[in-house]
Design a binder for these strands. Sequence first.
DNA 1: AGACTTAGCGAGCATCCACTCGCTAAGTTA
DNA 2: TAACTTAGCGAGTGGATGCTCGCTAAGTCT
Lengths: 190, 190
Amino acid sequence: MPTQLERRTATVTRLLDATEVVVHERGYAATTVAAVCAEAGVSQGGLFRHFPHRRALLVATAARVAERQTADVPAGLGLLESLRHLRDLVRSRPNQVWHELVRAARTDAELRADLAPALRDYHRRTGAAVAALAPTGRPWTDRHQAALRIVVNYLDGEAAVAHVLPDPARDEATLRTLADLLHPLFEETP
Amino acid sequence: MPTQLERRTATVTRLLDATEVVVHERGYAATTVAAVCAEAGVSQGGLFRHFPHRRALLVATAARVAERQTADVPAGLGLLESLRHLRDLVRSRPNQVWHELVRAARTDAELRADLAPALRDYHRRTGAAVAALAPTGRPWTDRHQAALRIVVNYLDGEAAVAHVLPDPARDEATLRTLADLLHPLFEETP
DNA sequence: AGACTTAGCGAGCATCCACTCGCTAAGTTA
DNA sequence: TAACTTAGCGAGTGGATGCTCGCTAAGTCT
């Protein structure tokens, strides 16, 4: 016999998982509560017991997804390998969902307001994770920080287009050029 | 007394202009035909005389917007100035609308199918425009092409976030770093 | 001028969707 | 065990939205 809290958290988790799936494959606007409930195996009434409205459900999903973004990039990789790893991370479902919601926030004032704390958390967290990624024994400057913003933003853009008009060869070539450009900043030049 | 064709093209133009405005401020999904008609000063019946369904209206808008993307970056600018110019271009309303629709296409199969030709056109066109941007008297290689993809994709990503959590100082610093990174590829090193 | 085609209108229709509400069942407290 | 609280259900509701259809007005052919 499960306790009430256990029941509760179990269904909430199922709902959040389901929302993640549905947002990923349908997008923010087309994520209906009916679809989420079907995916989660929960009734609509059950959903609204835990979330006051649809938006709350999506914001909760965003917060949970952002929390998992703590990039665990293994240390000691070469530059190109690190970039590949980062690309996979950016293309992962949680990250896609996160961006879907942040994008939607641009034209939805209420969503934007509710998402603000999660966004701040996200920036703090990724900032910290990225600092940990610094090559040991070399100074980590503002320019490194800026370079990483460039990389991440580039990868985000690439991921967006990759789904509509995929071109792996082009992506690979671009990644190599990116590694070349970053070389003087990140690698030893013996 | 205007001819029928003049009447027709006039209202179609008004509808497309209106769609551009509405998509920009509400996003793809929230762009209702009612809102477009109100903005254009056309009745809903009038709209559906020219477009079989909502999607057709949005696809037409996308095509028209993409056609105007032929980047007319003035030649002879320094690297940093060129980047600033490009950033303004990326942040312009037509480009924002274009990306809004391409993004939406990821999770909307029908939209994606209808948008495919415009997308191909777009890539052809921007490819040509970018080649024209090549510094005179220097060879234009695949690496330059790749570098430009990086720049444009970065700027797209930046523009997306800039609306939710603006930080002009950060953007400026990043742009300078970007210019530094691109320096060996684009500028003479005397 | 008269027959015909096309542009534009706007009330109305079918559908979908977020959310409500009264109910049962399950767990909790005394 | 008995009173109470909480989880979950699902039919029902109101509102929004894409689209239709019959109409009038305006332009086009002979």
